[in-house]
Design a protein around this nucleic acid. Sequence first.
DNA 1: AAAAAACTCCCCTAAAAAGGGGAATTTTGG
DNA 2: CCAAAATTCCCCTTTTTAGGGGAGTTTTTT
Lengths: 205, 205
Amino acid sequence: MIKLFIIDDHELILEGIYSLLKDEKDLEWLGTAKTPEELMLFLKKKTPDVLLMDINLPHKSGMDLCLEIKKLYPAIYVIGLSTSDQASVIRKMLDNGASGYLLKDALKNEILAAIQTVIKGRTYISHSVAEVLKKKASNDNLPLLTKREKQVLELIAEGFTNQQIADKLFLDVTTINSHRKNMLTKFNLNNTASLIKFALTNNFI
Amino acid sequence: MIKLFIIDDHELILEGIYSLLKDEKDLEWLGTAKTPEELMLFLKKKTPDVLLMDINLPHKSGMDLCLEIKKLYPAIYVIGLSTSDQASVIRKMLDNGASGYLLKDALKNEILAAIQTVIKGRTYISHSVAEVLKKKASNDNLPLLTKREKQVLELIAEGFTNQQIADKLFLDVTTINSHRKNMLTKFNLNNTASLIKFALTNNFI
DNA sequence: AAAAAACTCCCCTAAAAAGGGGAATTTTGG
DNA sequence: CCAAAATTCCCCTTTTTAGGGGAGTTTTTT
């Protein structure tokens, strides 16, 4: 019996997965959560073998949550779940310890296959996802933002100037300027406008 | 008996809704489709009373599909379904003839309420959606961009400077600067970064 | 036809960002 | 522990944007 837990903020997805899997003999349905908090509370009591996790949770990205979980409960196999087929997101998820990745258009067999695969310690990448990873190999070479850069970029997008950001983060204004220039350089852009557009369309912020 | 049909490209959502509603006595489950083509084929044979429609379909926006359906089959009540709570999208959907709008985190009762409401010819807007529409009521009163402003803004977002844009549009650089400043003023923003973010998140460009 | 809105161009100054370097200190990953 | 990456701070100059005005012309709406 594989103990299964699911976190997703969408009732319909929870229902859908439950409905798909409830009759499987070798699956034990531990429960569901809609928020990271609910999940963490539950994990203090019981530990699932496999955790299906939506990566678009409110207030917290599944990427970060996955990292946390794997730190606290390394034995749990995490399978990412999303509608997004963005290679960067998928790769980040795997980097953060996920054992598999499913798109939400996955069929029953695919979900079962994923669970059976990860429980053996192997990694399951669905067909469609694998293709995306291959196709967007170039996309993946995109230098990702570091924590600080992301933080700075978010503040830039909110309209703060370098000086204001520096004050907020207790840093020197030249530091913020460095980060800004680094981002422009690494993405080969030449001003803030294009940087913000790039970041938003690539879901960096 | 209300005849119900659902279109959504995500198996899980279809399963979820089916699972939620299959035991309802006064609902007749006509079927599901994953693509607009499937739906159109089906509609040639049978006509549902209520059509639950995901607005994020591949290759075609639910907004457009809704318009088509209402043209061909005005009697069908369409309920939009999405994860997005973007006011512009919701309003567009309603403009295009939808009778209701649900977010995918809707609970069973809400879906049922929506169906019961639209079948009576009234419009169902879920709590959460209504809030979004209200909150962004200001959004709708937002002074929209003029043609020229939109054109300029798009070029700004692509990273061109005022001078470059002026050259492209055969205008004086001061004109471009005026447009830029006007946009900042009318949206009450103070720099390009926030303007681009604002424009992108509000689907102005 | 009159009013309103959009579009165009102009002045000015100050503030901010971009572009070019360099370099020391932490943090992270192997 | 060592190397690589990230983070921090510094110099400099030029370009670009922001902010404050004003004003004439064209287009759209009433």
